[in-house]
């Protein structure tokens, strides 16, 4: 594997994770629990989708085969996507959406901090930009986790159930393969073990503050680094890609 091939894979992974999460979250637009929260989550969605565009644009440039970011987003099949599985899972109720968002925001927060120091100037630039945005996201979703956890018995139970079911998808975020190995040597990629230590500390403090508990001895899902996904990804792609696939010349 050349550095160029590894870099393409690496950016695709980050871009896809943002793209699929943004697409999933956009389902809440117009359906939020109340107006201000609808706006807030829509704004978060917009930032995440914007980051996806920046990353995929760069991936297309690195690949250098004449594909655009739209080609990458709309003309690949499920097995060619490398987003973390947690992002493709259905939103569920608001407690579940928030629980997932806290887990991912916290990952992004520490991941972008490290990526900001990358030798790759474009990746570092996008990371610096996204870090400012994610700081707001994490603050917002953390406040919600605490409100749900320390709220009523029902909100507590719902968010605890969400954590219990989502936890099995968290280890995937930190998996590294030959792509990471090669790019860490070049000073481009982030050592995800570093991110994991910080993430675990932050999440366990936040979960405790929210009067919740982290599930123990959970079987960890894996697969997205190889393009293996849950059954939900193909459905989300079918919806997201329908228009450009039916009308390949459509412009907007």
């Amino acid at each position: 594997m050349t550095t160029q091939e590894a870099l393409f894979q690496y950016i695709l992974r980050i871009g896809d994770t943002n793209l699929i999460l943004g697409q999933r979250l956009s389902e809440w637009t117009g359906h939020g629990p109340f107006l201000e929260e609808d706006l807030a989550l829509t704004n978060i969605t917009l930032d995440i989708t914007g980051a996806a565009k920046s990353f995929l644009e760069y991936a297309a440039k690195v690949e250098d085969k004449g594909r655009s970011e739209d080609d990458l987003a709309f003309l690949r099949n499920d097995r060619q996507f490398f987003n973390a599985q947690i992002t493709e899972l259905p939103n569920g109720d608001y407690a579940r959406t928030i629980a997932r968002q806290v887990l991912v925001d916290c990952f992004d927060y520490y991941f972008y901090q490290e990526l900001s120091k990358s030798n790759d100037e474009t990746l570092a630039g996008i990371a610096q930009k996204s870090l400012k945005e994610v700081t707001y996201h994490l603050r917002h979703t953390s406040a919600w986790l605490e409100r749900f956890g320390d709220g009523t018995e029902e909100s507590h139970n719902k968010v605890q159930l969400a954590l219990n079911e989502l936890w099995q998808y968290t280890n995937e975020l930190f998996e590294m393969n030959e792509v990471d190995e090669l790019l860490i040597k070049e000073g481009i990629a982030v050592d995800l073990n570093l991110v994991k230590t910080k993430w675990e500390k932050h999440i366990s403090e936040l979960v405790e503050k929210s009067t919740l508990t982290i599930p123990q001895n959970v079987f960890m899902q894996t697969g997205s680094r190889k393009g293996i996904h849950t059954e939900h990804l193909a459905f989300i792609l079918a919806e997201m890609q329908a228009l450009p696939r039916i009308y390949p010349d459509a412009k907007w």
Partner: peptide, 13 residues
Amino acid sequence: LISQFGSTACKAL
């Protein structure tokens, strides 16, 4: 503060 996210991404309410 009503919400960290206002009518556009750059504004709070």
